[in-house]
């Protein structure tokens, strides 16, 4: 099962390596990991999506909490939260197919961010399921390249 964990960590060199090292050393499987600045300059937020049973998750959370560089760990298991991923996708697009692709993009509320003679690049923000559906629909046109930023998440409502 997939779990989304959010960790507030010290924003200094080596911290990312510590955390990713912990995951590999303990055999935890990371689906995605993102790091970014927060409202506090010396604190970063990491959003980690891990696959595993409840017991694995419990160990992950405990192990993260144990690191002195980790200030807080939030497991979104019992909390309402918003999660978003960002996709950039370059699809083969000829004169004939371009319009169709734009229509698909429109339905998914994706943006066209670049266009060339034989391709176009689209940008989509959304939940994992939405992104997966979008990619699936575009597959027949021929995906040249794609990248996902990884999931970021925040709890709903109060801080």
């Amino acid at each position: 099962m997939k779990h989304t964990i959010s960790a507030l960590v010290e924003n200094r060199p080596g911290v990312l390596a510590k955390i990713s090292g912990l995951f590999s050393a303990r055999g935890f499987n990371i689906s995605s990991l993102t790091v970014g600045e927060t409202e506090v300059p010396d604190v970063s937020r990491m959003t980690i999506v891990v696959t595993g049973d409840d017991r694995t998750l419990e160990q992950v959370v405990k192990q993260l909490n144990k690191l002195p560089d980790v200030l807080k760990v939030i497991d979104f298991k019992n909390e309402e939260f918003i999660e978003r991923d960002l996709l950039l996708i370059k699809v083969s697009a000829t004169k004939e197919t371009r319009r169709e692709i734009f229509e698909v993009a429109n339905v998914f509320r994706a943006n066209v961010v670049d266009i060339s003679l034989d391709s176009c690049t689209l940008e989509l923000t959304g939940k994992e399921t939405k992104i997966q559906a979008f990619v699936k629909i575009l597959e027949p046109y021929g995906i040249k390249e794609m990248v996902r930023a990884g999931i970021v998440a925040l709890a709903r409502g109060k801080k």
């Binding site: 060199p13 080596g14 510590k18 090292g21 912990l22 690191l67 002195p68 560089d69």
Partner: peptide, 14 residues
């Protein structure tokens, strides 16, 4: 050194 000792120290500093 901090890279090598990361998994075998409680904490390390450069």
């Amino acid at each position: 050194t901090t890279g090598i000792t990361r998994p075998i120290t409680k904490q390390n500093y450069l």
